[in-house]
Design a protein around this nucleic acid. Sequence first.
DNA 1: CTTATGGCCTGTCAGC
DNA 2: TGCTGACAGGCCATAA
Length: 275
Amino acid sequence: MCRGLDQILRPGMRVERIELRCGDLREPVQSKDLQSLEGQKFVAIRRRAKYLVFEFQNSLLLNHLGMTGSWRSHQSFDQETPEPNQKLLVTRKHDHLLIHFSNKMKIIYNDPRRFGLILPISKEEEMTHPRMKILGPEPLSAEFSGEFIFQETRASKASIKAWLMNQNHVVGVGNIYACESLFQARVRPQKQAGKITRKESDLLARVIRSVLTSAIEKGGTTFRDFRQADGGYGTYQNGLLVYNQKGKECRICHELIQHQVLAGRSTYWCKKCQR
DNA sequence: CTTATGGCCTGTCAGC
DNA sequence: TGCTGACAGGCCATAA
């Protein structure tokens, strides 16, 4: 999503108007909270954990997609042939926020389940905001290593899967990627985090990097309505080894893939390959 | 303090 | 076909 938006948004584009249609998201947001963005130039977009960070001249807009959030763009005005061929702006159900730029480009935030978050903050707050400061290291950063996992899990009585999915420990590892990583590292999701060995920690760090890198390359995992900014689908679901594979044969040992709800989330594993 | 659970929402799918 | 219930990639308030 970040890459898709980066292709569309150009530094210097000015926000003409912010149109909030529904502020009833994870945290309520009101039009007046977003008003100061109007008139500001767009600077850049980046990602921190599962948040998109829109950087403008004087402030930031954080956006978490939750489970079903997505952005698409709309060029409502054809510069070459203005009046007669003007494209109508077509909006859809669950379009909650529209950012209108002065060059007639619009980006539209759509989120059926409204688990997403729109949060305007100042540039100074990026590191100190309660939602930001609790976040663990990026899994693709140097800070995230086998040593890190081993040290940080010593006192934990939670399952390794719950530990990995806790964004305070390491960010970006969601349910699918936790299942897939644990399979590749041959570690059972139910294993107590504090009992993970140093060797398992090293392997886990390596496979998490490779799983996430591969998923990013493939544009993510699409099941139902998760889309990229261009409306396309990711293809990571085609290579899933355990997630959503209940009752199918393990690709390594042909044992049937197990399923249970662990820490409230659907969990898949191979009882023979994973110890 | 840590960990587990239920709930937020709407849409989709399988099964009847 | 239409209905119902289960379930969904995240997170947080609350309970234990």
